[in-house]
């Protein structure tokens, strides 16, 4: 009983091992030599080269157009340009060229992305198996597709590297032309100058009329202001409402401050910096009364 079971198990194991190693077609499909040659010749080169060729043609056309434009510009040349002028113009042209190059590179970027999308859904690859009728050819095609997937991935990876390289190139060129990019970012922030503030201060000061009793207010009265773009006052709110209710000196003086702000409308807001004054604070300080 035991013997027979051992024998059957042993046989089963033997057959499995034999089948596994003796029949390699179960594990790996054997490569066929001839189709590999075909793959190298036609499909890869034709597909990829066509597309690349198309873009190149476009590029050439674009370049031609650019050249034409330049020519148009060059038609009315100055009668007698001095050396300095020539140098300046050359420098300008160089800059322009650099800018164009960057622009082109930037323009290329989305195109590459578009291609990527197209490659993700390649219609030609899908159509091919339809054209092939024989089973062998189908197998060959499958084999081709299997082999194709790997190089395509490699190409994509290489393109990503290229894109990254292009990006760094663009950044480098932008930095060359614009100098320090951080400085540009800082310049875009709205900063108020002392004169901007002084102008508003002096304007409001004219309208602030307080009584001597305001000297009893020992703290700064803060008002929350919101303005329109033209400097007109949208709203004035007294910040410390609690103190406004409790302290009669604070209340009366805060009212004078509110009147001053409303009376001074519109405020002389600095041009281009109106956004800064959409919401801001006025601190009214009564300590000057002691010097009266």
């Amino acid at each position: 009983m035991f013997k027979s079971t051992f024998i059957s198990i042993g046989l089963h194991v033997f057959f499995i091992i034999f089948a596994y190693y003796g029949l390699p077609s179960f594990k790996i499909k054997e490569p066929i030599e001839s189709p590999i040659d075909i793959v190298e010749d036609t499909p890869i080169s034709s597909k990829t080269s066509l597309k690349l060729g198309e873009t190149r043609v476009k590029e050439v056309k674009e370049n031609k157009k650019v050249i034409k434009k330049e020519k148009v510009k060059k038609t009315p040349p100055p009668p007698a340009p001095s050396k300095k002028m020539v140098e300046k113009k050359n420098a300008e042209l160089k800059k322009k060229k650099e800018i164009r190059e960057i622009a082109e590179l930037v323009k290329k970027k989305p195109k590459l992305n578009k291609k990527k999308v197209k490659k993700d859904l390649p219609p030609k690859v899908e159509k091919k198996p339809e054209k092939i009728k024989n089973k062998q050819k189908e197998n060959l095609a499958k084999g081709i597709l299997n082999t194709l997937t790997k190089p395509i991935k490699k190409i994509e990876n290489s393109k990503k590297v290229e894109k990254e390289h292009n990006n760094t190139e663009i950044l480098k060129k932008i930095k060359k032309i614009a100098g320090n990019s951080n400085r540009q970012v800082q310049q875009t922030e709205i900063k108020l100058s002392v004169t901007d503030i002084n102008k508003i201060q002096n304007h409001v000061t004219k309208y602030w009329n307080v009584s001597y009793a305001a000297s009893e207010v020992k703290m700064v009265i803060t008002l929350k202001i919101s303005t329109n773009v033209d400097g007109s006052i949208k709203s004035v709110k007294i910040y410390d409402k609690n103190l406004y209710q409790k302290d009669k000196f604070y209340r009366a003086t805060a009212d004078t401050a509110r009147r001053a702000v409303l009376d001074s409308s519109p405020l002389p807001l600095p041009k281009g910096k109106e956004k800064k004054f959409e919401n801001f604070l006025f601190d009214f300080d009564t300590s000057f009364i002691n010097n009266y």
Binding site: I200, V204, N209, V210, Y212
Partner: peptide, 17 residues
């Protein structure tokens, strides 16, 4: 963030209202 601008008014008039 909205109230980052503060303007101090430390002068005015003491005149009859």
């Amino acid at each position: 963030l909205a109230d980052d601008v503060r303007i101090k008014i430390n002068s005015g008039q003491v005149e009859p209202l």
